[in-house]
Simulated scan of single mutants.
Amino acid sequence: MQKAFLRVSGGETVPERLRGGVVAIGNFDGIHRGHLSVLERALEEARRLGVPALVLTFEPHPRKVFQPDVPLFVLTPPHVKARLIEALGFDGVIEIPFTREFASLSAEDFVTGVLERRLGISHAVTGFDFHFGKNRQGGPAFLMAAGERLGFGVTLVDAFRDEGAEIVSSSRIRLLLAEGEAAEAAGLLGYRYTVEAEVVGGAKLGRTLGFPTANMRLSPEAALKEGIYAVRFRRADGTLHDGVASFGRRPTVDDNGAPLLETFVFDFTGDLYGEIASVSFFGYLRGEVKFEGLDALVVQMKRDEEEARALLSGVRPLSQLDQAVAF
């Protein structure tokens, strides 16, 4: 029986059963197809050696530390990233707190303090351009030399390019999502973009209109294009429902509202308040429109429901990860 996945955060002690493993190192925001080429290589190496497979990542994103005044649309917050890593088959994720103090560590201190002493790794897998330590002084050559000296192997993975020979990056995916290109973003991610949050109370207007919604507040930095989407809604117990979601400020009823994700969950009756649920985005249907009144809004909502049901009726998983997340 497979042992439970472990998420080790901050200064928590790394359990003995996770020591001596193969470690994929990187920020991995988005867990996109480029990252998957690194992560899958680490899984293969761990199976070959018969040791645990781990991911070593950094929270928060380094850009939030070095450029705190510049908003950053984080594609996979820590809890979402951990769930994706678990779905891939890893034994655990180690989340190193990224602070200015940590950033000032020398490359040697990172290798000996984190990789050797804390994790006791047998093998490291990283992207070909991975740099670490103060002023990025550690690079691939440094890591390989350290591995030879300290007794762990190193695998460097080349940049992954899509079918158009372009490098897949988190930045490209952020831009696509900001433009409402949910399907194109899924093509680079290898799965449908997914958010996770608590279902909170709202004004309950949707209920009075015959379209009760599960409302979720996303990060203020979530630069997802405002509009109407065909989605899949996963409850805390794992049950899955198709739905149609509005992300935005509800211009017909609340011009000044903060952005809210409101999902009309198809074929469901019940109370979702307080549940931690996830929403996977399959397609962008239209932008937000300010209607003359509620009757016109209801007519459009019925059209949106029909279009979302039609779109979702023909979808298929893009990958094993997509199967785990959105199917």
Rank of each mutant, 00 (worst) to 15 (best):
R149T: 01
V125A: 10
H131A: 04
T155W: 05
D158C: 06
L105I: 02
E86M: 00
G147Y: 02
S171A: 15
H123P: 03
F98T: 13
V157C: 15
G127Q: 00
V93S: 11
P77Y: 09
E166S: 14
F130L: 12
A103V: 14
V111T: 13
L88W: 02
F160E: 11
I173A: 05
F110L: 07
A159K: 12
G180F: 13
K134M: 05
D91Q: 08
V80P: 03
I121L: 15
R118Q: 01
G133L: 12
F160R: 06
D129L: 10
D158I: 06
V111A: 15
F90S: 04
G139D: 02
F160Q: 09
F152G: 14
T112C: 10
R136G: 07
F128Q: 02
G127E: 00
G153C: 13
T126E: 04
K81S: 09
V125W: 09
V154D: 03
I85R: 09
A159T: 07
F152E: 12
I96H: 01
L176G: 09
I94Y: 13
T99A: 00
L175T: 11
R136K: 08
S171Q: 13
G127I: 04
E179L: 08
F102N: 08
A82V: 05
F102Q: 07
A87T: 06
G151P: 10
G92H: 06
I121C: 14
G120Y: 01
I173W: 01
A182Q: 13
T126V: 11
L143A: 03
A182I: 07
M144H: 14
P78H: 04
F90L: 04
T112S: 03
I167E: 09
E166N: 07
